[in-house]
Design a protein around this nucleic acid. Sequence first.
DNA 1: CAAAGCTGTATTATCGATCATACAGGTTCC
DNA 2: GGAACCTGTATGATCGATAATACAGCTTTG
Lengths: 289, 289
Amino acid sequence: MKSAVEPLKARRIYLLLRDRIVAGELPPGGRLPGEPALAAEHAVSRVTVRRALDLLEKEGLVQRKPGSGTFVHDSRSVRPIVADLSNVLSHLIDMGRSTDVKLLSFGYVAPSEAIADSLGLKPGERVQRSVRVRLIDGEPFSYLTTHVPEWLGLTYSEAELAARPLLELIERSGVKTERATQAINATLAGPEAAAALDLEIGSPLLTLTRIVYEPSGRGVEHLHALYRPDRYSFHMDLVRIGDDGERRWSPALGWPRAPNKTKADKAKTDKNKPGEKPTRGPRAIKQRS
Amino acid sequence: MKSAVEPLKARRIYLLLRDRIVAGELPPGGRLPGEPALAAEHAVSRVTVRRALDLLEKEGLVQRKPGSGTFVHDSRSVRPIVADLSNVLSHLIDMGRSTDVKLLSFGYVAPSEAIADSLGLKPGERVQRSVRVRLIDGEPFSYLTTHVPEWLGLTYSEAELAARPLLELIERSGVKTERATQAINATLAGPEAAAALDLEIGSPLLTLTRIVYEPSGRGVEHLHALYRPDRYSFHMDLVRIGDDGERRWSPALGWPRAPNKTKADKAKTDKNKPGEKPTRGPRAIKQRS
DNA sequence: CAAAGCTGTATTATCGATCATACAGGTTCC
DNA sequence: GGAACCTGTATGATCGATAATACAGCTTTG
């Protein structure tokens, strides 16, 4: 009666191996078990193992050498393409200037209930909806859907939106943006986002939903962002604050955001400053084994 | 030549419909197109559409009424089981006391290179590795893998770890925890995590990797957390700081940190505070059961 | 050099997912 | 009540994913 819809054995093996690699169980540069061994271990055929390895290779996690074996791609160069941001999205406005943006959709529509609700619109009010893709080095990494009230959207043109950060346009119009709330989550890539981000359909995505308010408390921008997790992630530094009973983590705000100094000073902090460093990555060191 | 390994048409349709629902295109409580209509629209058979709807129903996103239709489940009660945290993980220690924890694994092992690196261990040093699952109301929502240096792990017992937050145990041992860095990302559920979190294997997960340092700069805890996105998400309030040229968002620290429930209170916030909290919604007065 | 192990490739067979179709039973609306 | 819709269920045919096997070519090792 039941079939459980087991979504592809190859995918299962792929995920399992991927976990082992990112968890570090398989050392970078090391060779993982041969295809026949993997097939036996997971009770599948070698063809299926092969499909899993194909996926890993396509993502740059492993490298196959005919006659020799399959190796974990040691270069961390895959990861830190886009990363870091000490406090939240602090440098997005900068990125708006240093990255390419493709405007996929632009128009005025009737808002969904969720959008109208978050922007505090009256029934009947329309919104400007835009879909953009951000690229870095020609590779897409974020898929942005924004909604702004119609009266605000009319203060700039489609061409301007394609060229400048939305928040800049909003502030240019005279609207004050003081507060915002946001939520970070995860989902699977749907058809449109997958196509725009150059991904398979079931790929995982980081989501950011942000609502920007003007001082009066009215919402002026609803942003829904999807990020490729291999090209983007949220980094932050924390400090422990509070007294005994109520100690908790808090984002470290006043942080040396200038990439230049910091490193020079503490370069000699005894033996090593563990990797996983946010700002200015460990890739500067480039030590391998 | 290639077949592209299209991972299940049913999954594609499921994702597409899910996107429409969460995006609000399909109003909560509304009826979505009939199965024959959906089948025609996406050029698949009705059986396949059915499988997609099965998935949606299992997740509580839709409700099927024989003879009537399939409806978007209006109660948002599904979503905000666990949510919010104004500044990062501020209340995790509280949650450690109000939720159940299941210890799945506990032992001392040789660290992977990545772990040893982030904790600043010397070659040969061992680490304590533990895997825990956190439940709220009996439902799992997070899967935590922690690594701490052996000398630190020996200061508490397995039973203590199962009962108290790890950070509390670390601080009890006299180690000062002042700083930490963390990264938020997304992945797909592997076999172990999927089983522990009661999910399908390819499900999306929120990840949090945090490294806690003692004042000397040595790492004392490496935490890798996986969260069910439908039961957990990171919320934060932002304020805009800086002068003209360098305006950016910054986490709002001293904020009324009780966005939690209190539906009673916020009933009077009128339109001024547009909620942002998904917990609300005009017609979604909730609720079933 | 030769043996052993590996990846790359092809073949055929099997099993599950999908399709197309039909029918049963409930709901809605006229 | 009855027509028109809907979901629930079953059938057999078709297509893709997987299995089992075999072989070619390369690399490593002794």
